[in-house]
């Protein structure tokens, strides 16, 4: 059956996509973007009891240039939004964003003049994590789900096609306010 049979033992075959996905997901370096309450839970996740090191991501990077996952932990104010975007722009691709907590995801209970109603107004978000604040277990779960997503990420021309498809899909989507949700 082709190439596999001719290989010496101890060699596995895979696709470049899968290998890249595997290495990317198992060495995610998060950039600390601790803002409010969620930041404390994020620190607790990194500390003793929950021990994020088990999933190969205890290396919280202070410098965005060395990080590939931005965990936006907390409420983003109008004053912070430009800073957040700058940090995001400074990160090297490929990069992912996790909106931790309801404030980062949608503005949450702070529906007012000071808070950006969801960090997705400023940067593209790959994973939303509800909770106020989410428990460390929830953060770990969100990260594991994100890792799954990263594992299956496409590369090269396939990635470009995916982007175009996603863009088209998004263009056809109804605006959030016009969606009927479960009432449809």
């Amino acid at each position: 059956m082709g190439l596999e049979e001719k290989l010496p033992s101890g060699i596995l075959l895979t696709t470049v996509e899968k290998l890249a996905g595997y290495s990317r997901k198992t060495s995610l370096w998060p950039a600390t973007f601790g803002l409010a309450c969620c930041a404390i839970e994020m620190m607790a996740t990194g500390a003793g009891r929950f021990d994020l090191a088990r999933f190969g991501m205890e290396v919280f990077r202070a410098s965005p240039r060395q990080a590939d996952l931005m965990i936006v932990a907390g409420r983003v104010s109008q004053k912070m939004a430009p800073v957040l975007r700058q940090i995001y722009d400074q990160m090297a691709s490929p990069k992912w964003v996790l909106a931790m907590g309801v404030c980062a995801s949608s503005g949450g209970m702070f529906n007012n003049y000071a808070i950006v109603q969801g960090v997705d107004h400023v940067v593209p978000v790959d994973m939303y994590l509800p909770g106020c604040p989410p428990r460390p277990e929830m953060l770990i779960d969100a990260i594991l789900k994100l890792q799954e997503k990263i594992q299956n990420e496409k590369m090269g021309s396939a990635k470009r096609e995916e982007i175009v498809l996603n863009e088209e899909f998004a263009r056809k989507e109804l605006p959030l306010l016009e969606r009927k949700g479960l009432l449809a």
Partner: peptide, 9 residues
Amino acid sequence: YLHTGIEKN
């Protein structure tokens, strides 16, 4: 940078 408008809310 973390002004939340809690007093207004």
